[in-house]
Design a protein around this nucleic acid. Structure first.
Lengths: 209, 209
DNA sequence: GAAATCTAGTGGTCAGACCACAGCGGCCTA
DNA sequence: TAGGCCGCTGTGGTCTGACCACTAGATTTC
């Protein structure tokens, strides 16, 4: 691999090589990739360079390494990069507002989808849960997000929520009745009312401060 | 730093140490962080471990290194992780559907916001642009996303769009009239009509296949 | 056949060695 | 004195070789 013309940093070339390798071999989450030493040989680079690439991908959550076993492609549904970025810098005021707004938008989108596609059974289960358990607002919307069946949107919600949470602690605990009202509207497939209920709740929460 | 009780991997400890260091010293983008050798000394870990941490953060776009100069905190508005993730694996069928759906939802959210908050002037500029220039569908919604003023939502759109694009090339070039109709509704603050126009366009695009 | 053991392979880490490059200061020359 | 040259020092970039810790599978032993 002397033909390293593109980037100046070897570890980036290794990342790229891995990418093509995965693509070429159609590797999927759970599959094993060659060992560090073998990659080092095959690509004609030092093992340390290979490791830099692997560690970077690991922090991104794209691969997973198990000592004594090897390195594996990961189910990248959950990136740990979330927590990482989340705990890094988020002092900016504007960012906070954007976070809150985006979170609201996504939650509303989720509500819409759930109102449309969730089965009555699923919603009823949620109702039971609300009645029986203690929970935080986050938990509630996590379940809504999961119900929406769109894994990506759920993931985005998780990310945004995680960001948002690191900034200001969850305030205002909505009353159970409100959640139940919302769920009831969902059960009746009344999208409009459900969202309205949601918005009222938002308004109450900000009043609480 | 023998008190490395938490994680088993040193490079993760280094990442954490850097995080606290940045926080403690209130470092901001552009600031220089200690050299690899100094970190290696201060934290009592090998330089290679320090490098693994730094390379990971670099791939995340959080820091920037300049040979002969040092390592600097980066303006993290644009993470290169986007392109990276985008080009990685996305063969799964379900993921594709989720992508498309999420993209639609976000675009609709953006339209809603724009219908509410964008100035007439901004929308008129867009109209002029649509009339005068050639562009792709992506370009159009990129501008919408930017208009919405929510940097986070814009970024999410960019990410989702970038994912989506790597999978299937943008098909169907909507006619200019459709874009203009949509913009006109936005100008009139007619959220409903605008979204309706948007949805019709979606339907046409999938018919084109 | 089951349990204990050994062994090869893998990731985790370190130390030390070069190289390439940027910045700075001192020195020499015009 | 002004300008440019040169080399020193510090920094990131890379490689090598050496251990260690751990896993899984083969081997041996009972």
């Amino acid at each position: 691999m002397a033909d390293r013309t593109s980037s100046s940093k070897i570890y980036l070339d290794v990342v790229e090589s891995l990418r093509s390798m995965i693509e070429a071999d159609s590797l999927i989450p759970g599959d094993k990739i060659p060992s560090e030493r073998e990659l080092s040989d095959r690509l004609n680079v030092g093992r340390s360079s290979v490791r830099e690439a692997l560690r970077a991908l690991e922090l991104l959550g794209l691969i997973e390494t198990r000592r004594g076993e090897g390195t594996f492609i990961r189910d990248f549904q959950e990136h740990k990069l979330v927590e990482l970025l989340g705990t890094f810098f988020l002092q900016d005021k504007k960012v906070q507002e954007d976070l809150a707004e985006t979170k609201r938008l996504i939650e509303i989108d989720c509500l819409r989808i759930v109102a449309f596609f969730a089965t009555a059974e699923e919603i009823k289960q949620l109702i039971v849960w609300v009645k029986d358990d203690e929970f935080l607002d986050d938990d509630f919307f996590l379940r809504i997000a999961i119900l929406n069946r769109n894994r990506l949107l759920e993931r985005i919600w998780r990310i945004v929520n995680s960001y948002a949470r690191t900034s200001e602690p969850v305030l205002g605990n909505t009353k159970k009745e409100d959640y139940l009202a919302l769920l009831t509207y969902l059960l009746e497939r009344d999208e409009e009312k459900a969202i309205e209920t949601y918005l009222i709740r938002i308004r109450n929460m900000s009043k609480d401060e």
